[in-house]
Amino acid sequence: MTQTVTPELRQWIIEQSTAGCMPEAVLEAMVKAGWQPDVAEAALEQTLRDHLQKLGAGRAAAPAPVQAPAQAPAQATALEMATVRVPDIALSGSPRRLDAGDRMVDVIISVTQPRVVVLGGLLSHEECDGLIEASRPRLARSLTVQTATGGEELNPDRTSNGMFFNRGESELVKRIEARIARLVNWPVENGEGIQVLNYKVGAEYKPHYDYFDPAEPGTPTILKRGGQRVGTVVMYLNEPPRGGGTTFPDIGLEVAPVRGNAVFFSYNRPHPGTLTLHGGAPVLEGEKWVATKWMRERVFE
């Protein structure tokens, strides 16, 4: 049975959220009322996203707001928590190409929910080669963040070698970081350093989320450096003959690793409902080189 999301339902979602109901409670009420979970989840996410955009447009056109009285509650409303501002690419009017400042970038695929955009020609071939060569002497077995302690650990789900550039450590890195910041409308200083990864035949990164699990005891320590991760850009530096794509299991999407191309995705809360589960499929022939840029809520130090 097909369920249609009506204007009345959207209005009800906004009313519940602005009244202080948590998103999880709104979703639960919809499911109990007979809505299919996937339809309810998509309706909630899209409605809140659209509402936030309208609020943002209204703020831009309105005069500066009067300061709230001292007794106003400091805690954010459920709507604000559910629709935290995240990196995004301006795609109104369905542009085929985007101005990245120093080069034009193609829009190959655009998905609304979750927000996934495949970009063509984000990097030149010379820039791809430059990142690979600069990273080679510094490669080591890739680690993952250990959310139980806030440290790092070897993870059998991630069988690659990698390294991190410091933010702005070279002209090449600065140029790429500025380009990404312009495209996704997010400050350079809110980004982690670019990470380069090398996958040999059989190497992979099993499906995972990039945000830090709030339930893990080490997460508060991790978040001190800039808050949650809210966006990711994966850039392909070469083309393995077979395998090595970036998979999004929740939406049935696999992005092929094409040299110079990239995939961007964002997530407005640390929850599986963002549908941003993704992984690096095993390399079946040759090797794969990628560069990853993660964006944080605040300045990353």
Rank of each mutant, 00 (worst) to 15 (best):
L27S: 02
T159Q: 13
Q53M: 04
R167P: 05
S110A: 15
H278Y: 05
S17Y: 06
K32H: 12
F265M: 04
T246R: 01
L154T: 09
P282K: 04
V84A: 13
A140Q: 15
G121C: 06
A90T: 09
R242F: 08
T274E: 15
Q53V: 09
I13S: 06
Q11R: 11
P73I: 03
R242E: 15
E24G: 07
Y211F: 15
E80Y: 02
A40V: 04
V263N: 00
V86Q: 13
S170N: 08
K293G: 06
I109S: 11
A291G: 13
L139I: 04
R136S: 10
A178Q: 14
G191R: 11
P7Q: 10
L131E: 10
E126Y: 02
T292G: 10
P7M: 03
I13H: 03
G162I: 08
P37F: 07
Q53C: 07
V201L: 02
E239S: 10
I180Q: 06
N198Y: 09
G151R: 05
R296I: 04
G162N: 02
T4P: 04
L79Y: 00
E301S: 14
S17V: 06
A60C: 09
A61Q: 09
A291L: 10
H125M: 09
Y267L: 13
V26N: 02
E80H: 08
S124E: 12
A29T: 14
L55I: 12
T147C: 15
E216T: 04
V234Y: 00
G121P: 08
D38Q: 12
R242C: 06
S92E: 14
G193I: 03
F212L: 15
P114I: 12
G168P: 03
G273R: 08
K32T: 13
G226I: 01
W294E: 01
G58T: 04
G130A: 15
Q146F: 14
P87L: 08
M22H: 14
P37H: 00
R136E: 15
R175H: 12
G273K: 05
E189A: 12
D250T: 06
R59P: 02
K288C: 08
Q16M: 04
A62H: 02
E189K: 11
I108D: 15
R158D: 07
K54A: 13
N261W: 03
Q46Y: 01
L55M: 12
L98F: 06
G58Q: 04
E177F: 05
M295G: 09
Q113H: 12
R296W: 00
A203Y: 06
P69D: 13
L237Q: 04
K293L: 14
V230G: 04
I132R: 05
N198W: 09
F300V: 07
